[in-house]
Amino acid sequence: MGKDSRLILDPLADNNPITIQVLGICSALAITAELEASIVMSISVLFVLGIGNVVISLMRNIIPSKIRIIVQLIVVATLVIIVDLVLKAFAYELSKTLSVFVGLIITNCIIMGRFEAFALGNSPWRSFLDGIGNALGYGVILIIVGFFRELLGSGTLLGIPVLGDPIEKTGLYAFGYENNGFMLLSPMALIVVGIIIWVQRSRNKALIED
């Protein structure tokens, strides 16, 4: 059991897919201007990676290794189409915000990376745990970045104003606080992730690169 729980816990911090393995950066940066979009993206990846890992793991003995990339892509693409259709049906506005980035889950390197590195060589149950763990590790970073960008950029969380009203000057704004609109622009996502990496590696010296 201890071994199985490590599959979930490791990717959350010391083997995080984004900050340590450097996989799946693209979507992590592009859609994190709002917390809600980050959460939905994390859930979508959780679904695709959890199920996809099980499917690949079940088929691992019958996939010829020469065409495995195409097989993997087809499996992911099918799951992503399901996610896309569900989002369009139940959260249309949000699916507009995410636009092409739902489709880009297909080429999210986390997914291919875990298929190659784990699901092709392990039993379905362990692959499932690994998928969930890595998707959670991805989600944690996305949610941290989304939290700070939305809080500092527009003073809201999940669309609810938490710092007062910027126009009527209530709450923090009464003291002259202003929203930093710059946080909403894409380059700040990179810098926020850079700072997260900085903090993480200062706390755990073993992760420092030469």
């Binding site: 900050t19 450097v22 622009l185 894409s186 380059p187 700040m188 996502a189 990179l190 810098i191 992730v193 850079g194 700072i195 990496i197 900085w198 590696r201 200062s202 010296k205 420092i208 690169e209 030469d210």
Partner: peptide
Amino acid sequence: PALRGLGITFIITGLMAIGFM
């Protein structure tokens, strides 16, 4: 030390992205 490699690359890319804006 903690920024070496990945961290500084992210921050440089961010600054370059600001330039490209």
